[in-house]
């Protein structure tokens, strides 16, 4: 499998404090990678570094084989990466339809497979709320909208931070179901979440961060065989 994304020896800094220490991460086409670890271990910083949002980030980052280490976030987005950030970043003053429309753009290869109709098919709930403002939506609806909005940009790689945090169990289930659909579309994902069980059920690979260092990178079954990792780094 050819690597879609290849990050080598990433060091990321916020001011004087170093958050990531020599992180290596590769994602293949269509691969679903679960990124786990406790709060403050660098998961969000890693996603933001890949998106080009961390000004002081050193190390190699390649997408489709091309160098993106110095690329601006909008350039990385246009090469096929989409971010669903923690806190979701919905535009509250825009309606559901407007949130989706403003982001719509053909993929890097020109494909236009995602339409408003398909997003509404994936999330019937959003269709009911299509004329509501973003700030009128519940947390779960906002998360659906953020994912839908990211899909409208036709990404090859979707970065999802805290996929189900703060959502009611039923909503969380809906998001897990959606991640299955996204995988079926051949879109690669890096998913951050605290629900370790749901993650290991869907992910092709697990990557664990502790204090900005990768402490595990392998298939879920290997991870399950090392319960001491779970205990030490997740406190499960």
């Amino acid at each position: 499998m050819s690597a879609l994304l290849q990050a080598t020896q990433l060091d990321a800094f916020y001011g004087a404090s170093q958050i990531l220490h020599g992180v290596d991460l590769a994602v293949a086409r269509g691969e679903q990678v679960a990124l786990i670890g406790r709060n403050g271990m660098g998961k969000t910083t890693l996603l933001r570094s890949l998106m080009g949002l961390v000004p002081d980030c050193r190390g190699q980052r390649r997408l489709h084989g091309g160098d993106i280490a110095r690329a601006a976030p909008e350039a990385i987005a246009r090469l096929g990466v989409a971010l669903v950030p923690e806190g979701r970043g919905i535009f509250g003053a825009l309606t559901v339809v407007e949130n989706l429309t403003m982001a719509a753009r053909p993929g890097a290869d020109g494909r236009r497979t995602w339409t408003l109709a398909r997003i509404f098919e994936l999330f019937p709930r959003l269709h009911e709320r299509r004329h509501n403002g973003g700030h009128q939506l519940s947390g779960g609806e906002q998360q659906m909208l953020t994912i839908g909005r990211a899909l409208m940009t036709h990404p090859d790689l979707l970065l999802i931070d805290e996929a189900t945090e703060g959502l009611a169990p039923k909503m969380a289930q809906e998001i897990w179901r959606t991640l299955g659909v996204i995988k079926g579309e051949g879109i690669a994902t890096i998913v951050v979440d605290k629900d370790f069980r749901s993650l290991s059920a869907i992910a092709d690979r697990m990557v664990m961060l502790a204090k900005g260092v990768v402490v595990f990178d392998g298939v879920p079954s290997d991870f399950a065989a090392q319960p001491e990792l779970l205990e030490r780094h997740l406190g499960v």
Binding site: M51, A77, G89
Partner: peptide, 24 residues
């Protein structure tokens, strides 16, 4: 219009519009 939506979105959250691929 789409440009109007982008302008309104950017007034609310500049970083998010950039993440969506818009050259602000």
């Amino acid at each position: 219009t789409k440009i109007g939506m982008i302008v309104r979105a950017g007034a609310e959250n500049r970083e998010m519009t950039r993440v969506l691929g818009i050259n602000y």
